[in-house]
Design a protein around this nucleic acid. Structure first.
Length: 421
DNA sequence: TCTGGGGTCCTAGGACCC
DNA sequence: TCTGGGGTCCTAGGACCC
């Protein structure tokens, strides 16, 4: 087998959505630009255009023709959207991903606001990934703007500890798309991911196995992919702020305080140990659709509107399943209330389906098990326990009539009210 | 001025079966 | 009648990631 040193790269596109938008609107280069707001931002934008240029009827398809001086500004936005991404110029103002647009508007009112165009981002995503696999075929998809690449057995993958190959990939992507990315190369995914953050944008960073103490231990624990806000806060409550401190903990103490599995993982991660392979293919586990309403909805007063949205969500999930060739048998709903608390309910059928009306019917049963006193801000529909549609047909498990739910005290007792759907 | 949408994985309790 | 474990499936919630 290979005697080569294991070298894993993590490649992260730089401000991906924003950079794609700047390809389309180069006149915005260097200006603070924020992307987000969803459908609402598109509608606002079109409304502005319609007022400014009434001689033409503007639709979402016309956005590429938007006149330079009519980019909407953050200060004009009203609504409950969040920022999906922001250009580096906008980040200077403290504006960033997941921040509410209203808050961002106070920090940087002059920032341009662009609607999210996932079609376009997916297009560029496919392009840069195709360039990578042409050069280095063992690639793991980590979403629209990130991948892991196994350099170990790629010709040239060992030169300068991977730097030469990283540079080649970086250049090839830029030449084809005009987009830049940052790459980290290390002995494993955990370290590679951290390395790619070291020199952004357009950087290449190498971490060698012996450099964990010097390059990783001085970093905050939060930099470990997998330590989120909760785990970080808990570590801090024990006085553990830096990865070096985590590495110095007794494994037994970590296991006692964080559970066997997490404790072991924390210790290994702090020492830069990670044996996970680069996974080139994976099957989806679930598909879902959800929507946050423009305003909080009342189960009774907005019954008709909610019902229509609910049906639409079921139809969307069904369409997604059918388009991608999957069927599922666990149907579920998700609700978020005005106090931001969420609940889920699901039900597993005795057979697989991708049928919109059956999903709607089953999801409706789930919904009946949720107390609906509070107002709703979000409704979602999920289908899990997926199987490929063909496999399912071959095994003769295609839709059968009556779904057989397990015991449902709440439904049977009729205790839940007000009832909907 | 509150906080999107689409996912994965883990935990934990209960049902149910052997 | 009382006593076990072990294994799997289902459900609900939560942490985390992009």
């Amino acid at each position: 087998m290979s005697t080569a040193v294991r070298r894993i790269a993590h490649l992260d596109m730089d401000a991906f959505y924003a950079s794609v938008e700047l390809l389309r609107y180069p006149q915005l280069k260097g200006l603070p630009v924020v992307i987000g707001g969803g459908r609402r931002a598109v509608d606002d934008l079109l409304a502005r255009l319609q007022v400014a240029h009434p001689e033409r009827h503007w639709t979402a398809d016309d956005l590429a023709d938007i006149p330079v001086d009519f980019f909407p500004r953050l200060r004009d936005y009203v609504g409950r959207g969040v920022i999906t991404t922001a250009t580096y110029a906008a980040r200077q103002f403290g504006v960033g991903s997941a921040m509410g647009l209203m808050k961002a508007a106070r920090l940087c009112p002059q920032a341009c606001l662009l609607p999210v165009d996932f079609e376009q981002y997916r297009h560029y995503s496919r392009r840069f990934k195709a360039i990578i696999t042409d050069i280095a075929p063992v690639m793991e998809d980590r979403g629209v703007d990130e991948v892991y690449i196994d350099f170990t057995d790629v010709p040239g993958g060992q030169r300068e500890s991977g730097r030469v190959l990283a540079r080649l990939i970086q250049k090839s992507i830029f030449q084809d798309t005009g987009l830049s990315c940052s790459v980290g190369v290390a002995p494993n995914k955990l370290l590679a991911k951290m390395a790619s953050e070291f020199d952004k944008p357009n950087g290449i960073s190498i971490i060698q196995a012996h450099e964990v103490a010097t390059k990783i231990w001085p970093l905050a624990c939060r930099n470990i992919n997998g330590i989120g806000p909760k785990a970080d806060a808990k570590l801090k409550s024990h006085g553990i702020e830096m990865i070096g401190q985590l590495a110095a903990c007794e494994p037994a103490w970590l296991q006692h305080n964080f559970g066997n599995k997490t404790g072991t993982w924390l210790f290994d991660a702090a020492h830069g140990r990670d044996e996970r392979p680069v996974v080139t293919h994976s099957e989806p586990v679930s598909m879902s659709r959800e929507t946050t309403f423009e305003r909080d909805m009342h189960a009774v007063r907005d019954k008709a509107e909610l019902g229509a949205i609910f049906t639409e969500l079921c139809q969307s999930v069904a369409a997604d399943l059918q388009r991608k060739g999957y069927v599922g048998k666990t149907i579920g709903v998700k609700l978020r209330f005005d106090d931001f608390k969420s609940v889920t309910r699901d039900q597993t059928l005795a057979f697989y389906t991708a049928d919109a009306s059956l999903i709607r019917q089953t999801a409706g049963q789930c919904l009946k098990r949720v107390p609906l006193q509070r107002r709703l801000r979000l409704l979602g529909v999920r289908v899990g326990s997926l199987a490929r549609a063909q496999d399912d047909a071959e095994s003769g498990q295609i839709e059968q009539p009556t779904p057989k739910p397990r015991s449902h005290e709440a439904i049977d007792s009729g205790a839940i009210e007000p009832q909907l759907f």
